[in-house]
Amino acid sequence: MSATGPASPPRLDAGSEDERDLRDQLAQVGAEVVRAGLVVGSGGNLSARRPGDDTCWVTGAGTWLDRLDRPSFVRVRISDGSSEPGLVPSSEVALHLATYRARPDVTAIIHLHPQMALLLDALGERVRLLTTDHAFYVRRVGTVPFFPPGTAELAEAAAAAVADGTNCLILSRHGCSVLADSVELAHKRASNLEEAAHLTYRALALGRAADLTDQPPPAVA
Rank of each mutant, 00 (worst) to 15 (best):
D54P: 10
L212E: 14
Q215Y: 11
G124H: 07
M116D: 12
S2M: 10
R49A: 00
G44A: 10
F147P: 02
L129I: 03
P218A: 08
A197W: 14
V33M: 03
T107M: 00
S191D: 08
R35W: 02
A163H: 04
D105V: 01
E84M: 11
A159W: 01
A196P: 11
N192M: 09
A219S: 15
D80K: 11
L130H: 15
L87F: 04
R35G: 02
T143P: 01
A163S: 14
T4Y: 09
R103E: 00
Y100K: 09
H134L: 04
G165D: 03
S172Q: 13
A27L: 05
T55F: 10
I78R: 03
R75I: 00
A161P: 07
A108F: 02
F136D: 11
V178R: 05
V162A: 01
A117V: 00
V144N: 09
F73Q: 13
L68I: 01
R128D: 06
A209Y: 13
V76G: 05
T99D: 00
P6T: 06
D80Y: 07
P217V: 15
A180M: 05
R202V: 12
L22P: 11
L169Q: 03
T59W: 11
A48M: 08
Q28N: 05
A157D: 09
H187K: 13
T213Q: 15
V138K: 11
E156A: 15
P104N: 10
L112S: 14
W64F: 09
A158Q: 08
Y100P: 11
R140C: 04
P216T: 14
A135E: 04
A221K: 15
N167K: 10
D80F: 04
A135R: 12
L193W: 13
G52T: 03
L22S: 07
E125F: 02
L22F: 03
P216K: 14
D54M: 02
L185D: 12
R49V: 00
S47P: 12
H187W: 14
P85M: 07
A36Q: 11
W57G: 01
A48W: 12
V138P: 07
S90L: 01
R128H: 15
C176M: 08
V178T: 14
A203K: 06
A122Y: 03
P85H: 05
R128C: 14
A36V: 01
E92P: 13
